[in-house]
Design a protein around this nucleic acid. Structure first.
Lengths: 145, 145
DNA sequence: TTGCAAATGCGAATCATTCTCATTTAGAAT
DNA sequence: ATTCTAAATGAGAATGATTCGCATTTGCAA
């Protein structure tokens, strides 16, 4: 259960100053599965907490650098989505309609990558994997329309 | 072995007009593993075949739409790489240094995705997977430096 | 050969993101 | 509590990749 103090501690432990702006962004990302920088900017403005778009970008960059946040890009979109990172190597299942993001357990790529390494002579440094689909709620909505 | 006629046929079969520009781009992509739009633009200019950057983008878009070309983004890069698509569902092993792109056989994600579908209630529509590493040549070069 | 939709060229426009620089602020040190 | 400094912020300009508008050209089917 997220609390203000937890978030402040997260920031402190990361060596980042605890600012109104960063707190608000962390809080927002806790409510929403994943948002673009611009969506964050606008959501905060609606809450009466307006601050500069460049601050949003900078806050996200510092949070990412400290491992509190990650980003990806939805297929066919030009802007990037940010979401809270929960430790360890995990992949996401992402709804292409509402952008809900579900954390997955396990990774089918690791064994595959090792096999590849042997055959190709590459030194493997990482991989990207995302699975896309329609979440149950959006399946319903699409049926209605 | 690629020949001019093959490429022209590819275009015709895709319902695209056979233009100097599209031919040159296909040819170039056959030589190079993968290139950004701008790299294509400049490579063609060096060959004395200058044409507009927007034409490069449009040609790539139409080739992609017809399934002759795909694109991805290297991690930490802001521009997209284009490469010839060889039929079917395939993934790539990509050198993060020289950007060489190696086609992989098999896909470790399909079974995983089905399992996920059952558990999550999502209708899976696709996935993205890329594996990154250093190719043998670049391992050498890095050792030298 | 003709006709016309498709393709091109050029520059302007757009969009996400980053940068600059003056100002403010968190939090450590006093 | 006050002072001090590096870190963070705000506003807007700058950048860089990509797309768009529109006039012109060009495959290619008839």
């Amino acid at each position: 259960m997220p609390c203000e103090n937890c978030q402040a501690d997260l920031l402190r432990r990361a060596g980042l100053k605890v600012t109104r702006q960063r707190m608000a962004i962390l809080e927002l990302l806790q409510e929403e599965e994943s948002l673009t920088a611009d969506q964050i900017f606008m959501a905060l403005r609606e809450k009466g907490q307006e601050f500069g778009l460049s601050t949003v970008y900078r806050a996200l960059a510092s949070l990412e650098e400290k491992g509190l946040v990650s980003r990806t890009e939805l297929p066919g979109s030009s802007s990037q989505c940010f979401f809270l990172k929960s430790g360890g190597h995990r992949h996401h299942l992402i709804c292409i309609r509402c952008r809900k993001r579900v954390l997955l357990d396990g990774c089918p790529v690791e064994a595959f990558a090792e096999e590849i390494a042997g055959r190709s002579g590459f030194v493997i440094t990482g991989h990207s994997l995302e699975i896309f689909g329609l979440c149950p709620a959006c399946q319903q909505e699409d049926a209605h329309v």
